[in-house]
Design a protein around this nucleic acid. Sequence first.
DNA 1: AATGCGTGGCG
DNA 2: TCGCCAAGCAT
Length: 299
Amino acid sequence: MPVISTPSPDLSSILADWYHSEARDLPWRRKAFHARFGAWGTLVSEFMLQQTPVTRVIPRLEAWLERWPTPTAMSSATPAEVVQQWANLGYPRRALWLHRAAIEITARHGGDVPRNVEALLALSGIGDYTARAVAAFAFGDRHPVVDTNTRRVMARALEGRSQPGPASRRDLVTMKALLPDADDESAVFNAAMMELGATVCTSRAPKCERCPIAAQCAWLSSGRPDTGDDRRKQARYEGSDRQARGAVLKALRESDAGAVPLDAVIHDWTDLAQRDRAIDSLIADGLAEASEQMLRLPR
DNA sequence: AATGCGTGGCG
DNA sequence: TCGCCAAGCAT
């Protein structure tokens, strides 16, 4: 009988095999995409993917990059143009932050997206996730990339919980300990953990029968217990201030004249105090400006 | 550290 | 129908 036992493959090689055969063919994973747009392409895709689903980002990304193929190109745009191009991707402050980041990259880094995580973190709109995603996926460096997907996979596979707890910087430490030693393998590991969480180890109705690491999952082996969910619930959108802001901004984006009379902005809105609140807060956020009783996108 | 911030698809 | 959820960030 066999004297030589086959070593059981480690987590990272199982995930790498699975990733290479099962991962979705997304634009930002193509070699041609990196050849055309470099790290800027990765950075823009990551901004758009902050809380906006992949399927909604895909049709908007290429148009953005064709209009502004480099940080320097985008740095000379106006906020109004950027917010307009962002359209209905949601959370329009991200468009302003991306614009500021482009200006900062042009000023501080000669127009080249920095590779260093500290430098990336110093840019507007870039936090722990985006900084390391750019460093790992655009530059191939070894950093723990922690997002909602990897946190859920770690919570289930490692802790046996049905949902992760609130996001914590400790997650970075946990993820880093799982990374393979080699830079390139570590980038694949990050991508594979995210892909697994996005397509198999989903928040609701996870497809454990299709999971490549089912055999080593603490949650599955203990019978998928409901361990509770201490994540904060999302506030209701219907009737919210956010909905009012969204309606005002939509009106500004769609205004042919580029400006709307203040008293005509979402004129059919029933809660007038809420409408005024929305306008004031958009101005405070730099997403709108008022002059001569007109409201417009910021110039 | 808890909150506020868009929008739309899906079960 | 309607609540859940989505590659987070700044304050």
